[in-house]
Design a protein around this nucleic acid. Structure first.
Lengths: 171, 171
DNA sequence: TTAAAATTTCAATAATTTCTGAAAATTCAA
DNA sequence: TTGAATTTTCAGAAATTATTGAAATTTTAA
C-alpha cells in the first residue's frame, strides 16, 4: 500500500507500483492471476500494469514447465533496478527537456527580457546536462563501486582535494 | 508549457510548475495579477500555487515601495533551487518511506516467504538510506564544488582508486 | 477606526487519470 | 485445424486531482 502511495508521488500510478512491490518481495515469480488475487484489482488492470512495467525494462519473464501462464519477477539486485529506473526516466523525461532547451537556446533573444530568460534557460540546461552526464557515468559503475561511492558521501569533496593536490591543479 | 508538462510527470501540478518557470525566467519579481494575466489562470489558482511553492521554500518575496502587492521571485542560483527541491522532496517522500521500512524491519518474519520479503525490504532500505545520506552530504557542498564534482563524473571512480592507494585500504 | 485593496479559503465544477468488464486477439495442446 | 486457456484491448465508469468563482479574511493607507 505504501509503495503504491509512494509511486503515485513520483509519477507512476498506484497499482503499477503495487504490482512491482509485490513482485520484488515475492521469492517466486508470479502470474497475472496471482497478482489479481493478492492485490484485489481487475485482470485487465494487471495486464496493463505488467505491460507498463515491461516498457520500463523492470521485469524478468519466467516460464514454468507444463504451465502456459506467464510468470513475472524482478532483478535481484536493487542497484540494477535503481539504475534501470533512472535510465528510463532520463530517456523519457529529461532528454526531451534537454532538446527543447537546446532549441530555445538557438533562438536569438529579441530584447532585454528575452535575454534574461535566455540566460536562465542556459543555466537550467547546463545544470540538467551536468547532472545527467554524471548520472550516465554512475550507470557504468557496478553495484559494489556505486555502494562504495555512496558510503563515501561528502568525503568525495575531501577526495577531490587530494586529487587536486596530486594533479597540482588547485592550491 | 513544457515545464508545466514536465512538472506533472514529477509529481507537481501543471500550473504550479508553470508559475515557477515564469518566475524563474522573469528578471523582475512578479505579483499575482501579473501571473494571472501571463498564464491565463484564475486568481485563486495562482494564490494556491504560490502558497504551495512557498511551502517548498522555493520563493523569494519582494516588496516594492508604494505598492501593497506582494512580488515573488526565485533564487538566482540554479544549484540552490535544485538543492532545495531535493531536500524538500526527501523530507516529504523519502523520510516517511524510510521510517515505514524501519518499522517493517523490526518485525520478525514468521515464515520463509516473509523472510524473503524482509530481506528485500532491507535491501531497499539500505539503498534508499545510502542514496539519501549521500544526497545529504552533497547538500553541504557549495554550488561550485557541486558543479566540479558533476563534471568529474565517473572520473570519481578513478579518484577513489587514488584515495585507496593512499589510504592503503585496497590493493 | 474605516474601507479599499489584496489575498486566501473552500465548496462546486471541470478536467484528467485510473480502473473495469466485455469482447477481441493470441497462443498452443491435442 | 480446433477450441480452451490466456492475454490484450478499449470504451465507458469510477476515482482522483486541479481549477474556479464567490465569499470570507487579512492588510494597510488614510
Amino acid at each position: 500500500m505504501h509503495f503504491g502511495e509512494m509511486g503515485s508521488r513520483w509519477g507512476m500510478n498506484r497499482t503499477v507500483s503495487q504490482i512491482y512491490a509485490l513482485l520484488m518481495t515475492s521469492e517466486q515469480p508470479l502470474n497475472a492471476d496471482q497478482i489479481v488475487e493478492t492485490l484485489g484489482i481487475s485482470r485487465s488492470n494487471v495486464s496493463m500494469g505488467l505491460k507498463e512495467l515491461q516498457s520500463w525494462n523492470l521485469l524478468r519473464q519466467h516460464n514454468i514447465a507444463g504451465d502456459r501462464k506467464d510468470y513475472y519477477g524482478t532483478p535481484d539486485d536493487i542497484w540494477e533496478i535503481t539504475r534501470t529506473l533512472i535510465e528510463e526516466r532520463r530517456k523519457r523525461e529529461i532528454d526531451p527537456t534537454l532538446s527543447m532547451l537546446r532549441n530555445l537556446l538557438m533562438k536569438e533573444p529579441a530584447n532585454a527580457s528575452e535575454q534574461y530568460a535566455h540566460q536562465r534557460f542556459e543555466d537550467i540546461h547546463n545544470m540538467i546536462e551536468m547532472v545527467t552526464a554524471w548520472s550516465n557515468d554512475m550507470q557504468r559503475l557496478n553495484s559494489d563501486s556505486l555502494a562504495q561511492l555512496m558510503k563515501l558521501g561528502a568525503g568525495v569533496s575531501k577526495v577531490l582535494d587530494i586529487k587536486d593536490k596530486i594533479a597540482g591543479k588547485r592550491s
